[in-house]
Each structure stands twice: as C-alpha cells, then as structure tokens.
C-alpha cells in the first residue's frame, strides 16, 4: 500500500479478475474445546469392558488385577453386610470434621497473613516451612499428641487441608484489585467493611479453588489418617485389603474414594457457579 501511495497517492486501477476468484482458505480451526459429554462415560465403559474381558479370558491374571466384576462383588458384599455405611460414616465424619476445621483455620490464618504485616512477617515463613512436611511422617507424633482415637485422624486431615487453604487465601487477598480497596477508602468505608465487602468476596475465587485442592488432599490423606488404630473407614478397609492381599476389596475401596472425589469436585463446581456467578 505504501508503495502505491508513493506512486500517485491513489490505488492503481485494474479490472478485478472475478472469474478466478476463490474462497479464502479457512485456517482458524482446532485449539478449541467442544463439549462432548458422552465421551467420558464411553471411555470408562470401554476400559472396564476390556478389563473384564481380559480377566475372563485369562490374559489379565487374577493376581495381577481382579476383574471389575470381582471388585463389584466385593462392593456388593459391603452393601449387603451393611459395612459400607459403617465405613463411609466413619470416613465422612473424619473428612468433614478435618476438612471443615482445616479450612476454617486456613481461611482465618490466610486472611491474617493477607491483611496484617505482622502476621505475614511472623506466620508466612512458618507456613512455608511446615507446608511441605509429609503429614504421614508425623503420624507417630500425632499418636502422642492426639491419641489413637478420632483425634489423630481428624488432625492428619486438618493439617493436610490447613496449609493449602492458607496459601490460597492469602494469595487471593493479595490479588484483590488494589483499586477497589482504594475506592472503598475514598468513600470512607470502615476497615471492617472493606474486609467484609471487598477483600473477602474478591478473594473468594482463589479460596474456592483452594477448597478444590484441599478437598482432594483430604481424601488422599484419609488412607494415611486411618492407618492409626481405625476399626472402620474406607481408608482402613483399603489398608486391610492390602495387608490381606484381597485385591477385589482393594479395588472396590479405591473406587469408593474415587467416587467421593468426583462428588466433592461436582459439589465445589456447583458452589463456584453459585458464589461466583458474577464472573465472566
């Protein structure tokens, strides 16, 4: 174009060759996700069908992996004996209590670190130092501190969920738009109002995604938590199946954990949609 302009300041007049015109090649496809809701059930079904087939034909030895039907039978045993509810009840109690306490404390500490310089200077190094410690390594200590009853189990889950929540929360507070805070100040809002109406809602997306992670960690830690003197619980059921080399029960137990994970993820997704409907 600059070339043409240099010559005369207006485009060169030439007839348009319409006969040889062709569509512009399309290059914009791919890289975009479509919703294919039926694919994942099909993938699951195919894998389980192949697995069952492999087990029945003997390609997969039953000591390598029990057939899905065997795992299902083990699961049905749990249902019929009523043990499922005992195990689930015990585990859910620990999960709910540990996760709730861990999350509440985590949000409180995260807010403190996010809001107060003193708390940040004092607690942040502590959190960074304690976060990477595998909680399982502390089990013998937890036994002494919290006993072998529910205390140490809830504590394991509590500690496991506390740290990621702290980090998610203070990260969320740090990421609240400073301009919104300045706006609040410019309208003379009180400190408490700014925290309640601007900072906490602004940090909520980060807190909720922290919950997503901490809930998964809580399920992972369930098995560890139920290592200590647990008579009932999905984790202890899995441990027992492992030590008795009862693979069908092992797979059934793991599947229950997996379903718990799916349900929690779904619930948090719903919570996100409810609380964060203001997001684009």
């Amino acid at each position: 174009m600059s070339h043409d302009l240099a010559h005369g300041g207006s485009p060169i007049q030439r007839p348009i060759d319409a006969a040889n015109a062709r569509p512009v090649p399309f290059r914009g496809g791919g890289f975009r996700h479509r919703k294919l809701g039926i694919v994942s059930p099909i993938v699951f079904a195919v894998i389980i069908a192949l697995w069952e087939l492999g087990s029945r034909s003997g390609i997969i030895s039953d000591i390598a992996l029990p057939a899905p039907s065997a795992a299902l039978a083990a699961f049905m045993d749990l249902v019929h004996t009523g043990m499922l509810w005992k195990h689930l009840g015990a585990s859910l109690y620990r999960l709910v209590l540990g996760w709730t306490l861990g999350s509440l404390l985590g949000v409180a500490f995260g807010l403190a670190i996010g809001l107060f310089s003193l708390a940040r200077a004092g607690l942040l190094p502590l959190v960074s130092a304690l976060f990477p410690i595998p909680k399982i390594a502390l089990l013998p200590l937890f036994i002494i501190w919290f006993g072998i009853g529910e205390g140490s189990k809830v504590a394991t889950i509590l500690f496991g969920t506390f740290f990621p929540t702290v980090i998610a929360t203070y990260g969320g507070v740090d990421n609240v738009d400073r301009n919104l805070i300045r706006m609040g100040q410019s309208f003379g809002l009180s400190w408490l109002s700014i925290v309640r109406k601007i900072i906490i809602p602004g940090a909520l997306p980060a807190i909720l995604s922290g919950f997503r992670i901490s809930a998964s960690i809580a399920i992972v830690l369930l098995v560890a938590a139920e290592m200590i003197g647990a008579e009932f619980g999905i984790g202890s059921y899995i441990l027992m199946a492992g030590s008795l080399f009862a693979l069908d029960q092992l797979i059934a137990g793991v599947a229950i954990l997996s379903v718990m994970g799916l349900i929690i993820s779904w619930a948090i997704g719903r919570a996100e949609r409810y609380f964060l409907n203001w997001r684009t």
Binding site: M227, I228, G229, E231, L239
Partner: peptide, 16 residues
C-alpha cells in the same frame, strides 16, 4: 491396627 512396629511402640509407650 497401627500399621508399623514403631507406631505400635509409640502408642504403647504413651499409654494410647
């Protein structure tokens, strides 16, 4: 069930 011998020892020593 405490999984490991050291855990049993810890629990016994502390009277758990």
């Amino acid at each position: 069930p405490l999984q490991k011998v050291p855990a049993v020892i810890a629990a016994l020593k502390s009277g758990q």
